[in-house]
Amino acid sequence: MTLPSPTEESRVDLLRWHLDRYDRLRASTASRASVLLSAGAILSAGNALVLSQLFGETRLATWVLVVLALLLTASVILVVTALIRASGVLVTLRPSRELFPGGSDLPESLLFNGPDTIKIASSFEMFAAAASAQDYAQIKQAALVELWIVIHQHRYRYARLRAAAQVLRWAAIAFVAVVIGLVAANLASAL
């Protein structure tokens, strides 16, 4: 059984479906980054609490304080690193086209890409004229360009999210090590 070739309209519909899908993936990635930022805030609060306990009234040996302070410093540095990486998922510091090789060489994507549209049309009249002048092939090409950009943008953001999650795991491990060390040292000094 041979399937019919897709029409130009169905190809544009498929492009729209893919663009919608990648918009949902980007939103999901940003939502996950927000969860990482919240977890980082909780770890930061925990680090602050441990820091106040560590350098409050304590009877711990100097070497124990130094070891725990180093572990706590590692946890703080890892939390800050994770927060920086997670915030890079929410907003990129560079335009999307600059995130991957050859992105700046792509044709402009009128209507599908906000920065391209503003660059092409600085007034509503110019925007309306440019949008009305597009034929079906130009609309399809603009959609393809935008899909290519959002695919790369999603991959870039997801890689940063994954790196942030990995660093936050190490921060949590360092935090737990500090807490365990502090509890053990306090118990030992109380005995």
Rank of each mutant, 00 (worst) to 15 (best):
L19A: 06
L19T: 04
R21V: 07
V79C: 05
S96M: 07
A86T: 05
G103A: 01
Q141I: 01
A74T: 09
L3Q: 15
L182R: 04
S75E: 03
R21D: 10
L78S: 07
L43I: 04
R32E: 09
R162D: 11
L15A: 13
Y136N: 10
A142Y: 00
P115Q: 04
S96T: 09
V176H: 04
A27K: 10
I84C: 04
S123E: 07
Y156G: 02
A86V: 03
V76E: 13
I180N: 04
E125C: 06
A74H: 05
L43W: 03
L191K: 10
T117F: 00
L43Y: 04
A164P: 05
L191P: 07
P115Y: 00
E8V: 08
S122D: 12
V12S: 11
V89P: 01
I139P: 00
T2A: 15
E9N: 08
S189T: 11
L15R: 07
Q53S: 11
A129N: 10
D135I: 02
V76Q: 09
L168H: 06
F100H: 03
R155D: 13
S87Q: 11
L54A: 06
L111C: 06
L110W: 00
A128W: 12
M126H: 14
R157L: 12
W170Q: 12
W63L: 09
A172R: 11
H154N: 15
P4V: 10
V80L: 14
V91H: 13
A137H: 11
A184Q: 02
I149M: 06
I149L: 10
A69V: 03
T92E: 11
L60M: 04
S5Y: 09
M1G: 15
I180C: 12
Y22T: 15
Q153E: 15
T2P: 15
F175C: 08
S34P: 01
A48D: 14
T7R: 07
A184H: 01
S122L: 08
N186C: 05
A128L: 08
G46P: 03
A82I: 04
I149S: 02
L161Q: 09
E57D: 10
E125P: 04
H154P: 03
T92N: 06
M1Q: 12
A129Q: 14
K140E: 13
A177F: 09
V79M: 02
G181P: 04
R85F: 09
V50W: 05
V35D: 03
L168A: 07
S34Y: 03
V183M: 04
F124V: 10
A69P: 03
P4G: 12
P115I: 00
R24C: 05
W148E: 15
A82T: 05
